[in-house]
């Protein structure tokens, strides 16, 4: 649930990029960091291993601006996708307002996509949350791979009921990155006031 600071007149939202290892979560945040002008973003914090795999999280604060007298902010996080980092992954989900699930189009990652989604459901359940309770956007990344699977096929294993909005992306080139972020932000904002 959003954090509201009445005294400073701020509303903050937490958006988490989830998905299997190497699917491109950190790449999304780096692209966003590179494109957002100074003054609208804070420092990007990355807790990563030497080989640039996320160890705990990446963090990027963005300033949307002032809405009806409230400074509105998004805090973007990525989780570590590698299976054995589940303990840290779970911690990052605390207080989440919206999720971008970054799936990998590589054929040999199809199963990892499905497992990561199952893992996300389990971790949310520990906070008493269901995937249905939270805005989720599905980003099917790495569309540039020569052997990229059809989007339908990725969607079929991650979200068989077709509940989440889907965006195709090539995060390394920025394709689909802002479209995805905008949609999840829109969904998160749409809930303000209705249940806060």
């Amino acid at each position: 649930m959003s954090t509201i600071n009445f005294a400073n007149r701020e509303i903050n939202f937490k958006i988490v990029y989830y998905g299997p290892g190497l699917s491109g979560k950190t790449t999304n945040l780096k692209w966003i960091y590179g494109k957002i002008p100074e003054g609208r973003k804070g420092e990007m914090v990355s807790l990563a291993t030497e080989d640039e795999r996320t160890l705990f999280f990446d963090f990027l604060p963005l300033d949307l601006g002032e809405v009806k007298g409230f400074k509105t902010r998004f805090h973007l996080y990525t989780v570590p996708g590698q299976v054995f980092y589940n303990a840290s992954r779970k911690l990052i989900l605390r207080g989440v307002d919206g999720i971008v699930f970054v799936a990998d189009s590589a054929p040999n990652r199809l199963r990892a996509n499905a497992e990561s989604m199952r893992n996300m459901r389990e971790n949310l359940a520990e906070y008493g949350l269901k995937v249905e309770d939270i805005p989720v956007v599905l980003q099917v990344n790495k569309r540039d791979l020569p052997d990229a699977l059809p989007v339908d096929m990725v969607q079929a294993v991650v979200d068989p009921e077709g509940r989440f909005p889907v965006f195709e992306a090539v995060a390394t080139e920025g394709r689909g990155v802002f479209e995805t972020l905008k949609e999840v932000s829109r969904l998160v904002l749409a809930r303000v006031g209705s249940n806060a």
């Binding site: 649930m1 954090t3 509201i4 600071n5 605390r94 906070y127 949350l129």
Partner: peptide, 8 residues
């Protein structure tokens, strides 16, 4: 939602 928001 489960976790209450702390608002000051």
């Amino acid at each position: 939602m489960v976790e209450p928001s702390l608002v000051l």
